[in-house]
């Protein structure tokens, strides 16, 4: 079973991203589960969401304490909270940032990937310059970085689940798929 944690801020689409990733994996025949951190959401406040993916039926319903992957939607969160908390040894972190992966060290046991998702999203008119919506962009990068889900499934899930600007969101995912660094 693969467990994934999303870190974002309220309004960036972390919860939606966890759902899109689940649906993408579901389209590849996996069993999936996605859920928000069971909290009260406020715009701008740190938000956590989770996805579980398995080739077998998923029974476990406890929260995710030791994820295999972490996605960080907001670069400022890296300094603010311990995004690597509980991350399994050999786990991976994908960060939305303009920096290179070697600019980050989380104790050296993890693989880090980066992509300037804010830039891609802003150029395609997803959200505003001050608060870009980077969730779909980051999922494109995640597909390339981890290979857990194919980009085709990610694009199909985006098309199925995103209510507005479907083409732009799909293009953003595709661009991030090309541009992710690791």
């Amino acid at each position: 079973m693969i467990e994934i944690r999303f870190h974002g801020r309220g309004g960036q689409g972390a919860v939606v991203a966890s759902g899109i990733l689940a649906e993408a994996a579901f389209r590849e025949g996996k069993d999936v589960q996605s859920f928000p951190f069971f909290g009260v959401e406020r715009r701008g406040a740190p938000v956590v969401a989770f996805t579980r993916i398995d080739s077998k039926y998923i029974r476990l319903r406890q929260k995710i304490y030791t994820p295999d992957y972490v996605l960080v939607l907001d670069p400022t969160l890296v300094e603010k909270i311990d995004v690597a908390k509980g991350l399994k040894k050999g786990g991976s972190i994908l960060i939305n940032t303009d920096k290179n992966p070697d600019a980050f060290s989380f104790g050296g046991e993890y693989t880090v990937a980066t992509v300037n998702a804010s830039n891609i999203a802003t150029r395609l008119g997803l959200g505003s310059k001050s608060s870009p919506i980077v969730n779909t962009t980051l999922l494109g990068a995640f597909s390339k970085f981890t290979g857990i889900v194919g980009i085709k499934s990610v694009l199909a899930a985006i098309e199925g689940r995103v209510p507005v600007k479907r083409k732009e969101n799909m293009l953003a995912a595709r661009l991030a798929y090309e541009k992710v660094r690791f």
Binding site: S34, F38, R61
Partner: peptide, 11 residues
Amino acid sequence: DAFILSHTSEP
């Protein structure tokens, strides 16, 4: 159950 089912997506 609140959230554990109500807000959890699955097939």
